[in-house]
Write a protein that binds this DNA or RNA. Structure first.
Lengths: 223, 223
DNA sequence: TGAATAGTGTCTTTCAGACAATATGCC
DNA sequence: GGCATATTGTCTGAAAGACACTATTCA
């Protein structure tokens, strides 16, 4: 950095202009009862008090965007160490009645088994909603949800996110159920297995899934 | 909106928290001299004075993100009415030495024929750079440029953006040249035409491109 | 042995890619 | 007629999709 730059920065006043606020919102999807569900929280404070909303919150002044998303996600679900994907940034003036708020939306998929939902200060309640039965949401969150759903369906096969919906070891039938649930259509068992195995993204383990009937071989995601 | 919400909003103080600044940056690509080029401006003010950068600027408090991107694009190139795609939002603390700046990056493709480059107050100079010969850029703009290039190559065939690099009427050879330039590889003429026509995104016009030799049929983008 | 789920192979269709000869207009 | 560019079809290999039967375990 030049001397001139240093001199300039000393005098720089970041407060000179009126600035928007920045938030992150996180679309958290899971599969429960063979349905694709999204995590929503009931707002405990105005604006939109008592309306359901996508979890999220303000980005700290020194906090990275993704870091903020991880923090919010952890505060809501106590889930850590999963992959987040940045979806889109929504910044239409008027989308938040308080002030100008620009929100960076993220998407997360988590297996439902190890989630403990937590309430938090400004969320009187939280819950999973089937994506066909979501209520009217606060702000422009219906739009964000629709955006996220499209993204999810388009990118399910292109990325590795589907594995986040499953435990470490899983059967191919379980993986197929994830695909069928997210895509909301039936897939042919033989073609599905052929394709997944051809992709080379899973490897067979020595474990079996013991159940009432013929045990299934368990696979794990090849890292 | 509830009475309680209205009451709340009256008392809401948006200045309570220290907030990041928000900018838009626009990657403007064109094809000139059969090369893919990106528009860069030379910074006229600190920080990074005299360094090359992607055009962009602060988002107005009441200004939509895309609107801000259009405004900046117009100020730099006097180009209007084209399609912008939101690319990604970069918000790492420290990416701007002045203060915390979160930038929403957009991508635009324009045909080089009707561009008048304009200088502006904080850009001492502006110019087109072959993407193989870009200088070291200000801020994290090299990263943004790389991100945009990957996006462009991945999405050239999935979106309609390629048509923005061409005039309204064009020959299939011209379209193929765009593809070859962006993807940086040769394509087979017969396969290319077969694929484009199968997509059904162009329609034949009655015009011919008259040149020195056999005239080519002109096409237009099917809206 | 019956119920329930796991696991497997072939044929057909479709799409991408390699490949070269003819057509047209201008000089 | 020569030159430069436009235009067109076939073959091959790979991948996706339709389709049905056998295998294994447990009750």
């Amino acid at each position: 950095m030049s001397e001139e730059d240093k001199e300039f920065l000393k005098k720089y006043d970041a407060e000179k202009f009126k600035r928007p606020s920045v938030t992150v919102d996180i679309l958290v999807f899971t599969i429960k009862d063979e349905k694709l569900k999204v995590l929503l929280i009931k707002r405990g404070t105005p604006p939109f008090k008592d309306k359901w909303a996508i979890p999220g919150g303000f980005v700290g002044f020194e906090e990275d965007l993704e870091e903020a998303a991880f923090r919010e996600l952890f505060e809501e679900t106590h889930v850590k160490g999963i992959k987040l994907e940045q979806l889109h940034t929504f910044g239409e003036p008027g989308r938040d009645p308080r002030t100008r708020v620009i929100t960076v939306a993220y998407i997360a998929l988590i297996s439902s088994e190890n989630i403990k939902l937590l309430s938090r200060a400004d969320a009187a309640d939280a819950g999973w909603f089937s994506i066909r039965e979501t209520p009217e949401l606060a702000f422009d969150h219906n739009k964000i949800l629709g955006f996220g759903l499209s993204w999810l369906r388009e990118n399910l096969e292109k990325t590795n996110i589907s594995f986040q919906l499953l435990p470490k070891y899983f059967t191919l039938t379980e993986l197929q159920n994830v695909y069928e649930t997210v895509l909301d259509k039936k897939l042919d068992k033989r073609n599905f297995r052929k394709r997944i195995l051809a992709l080379g993204i899973v490897e067979k383990t020595k474990m079996n899934k013991t159940g009432v009937h013929r045990p299934a071989k368990m696979f794990m995601f090849k890292n």
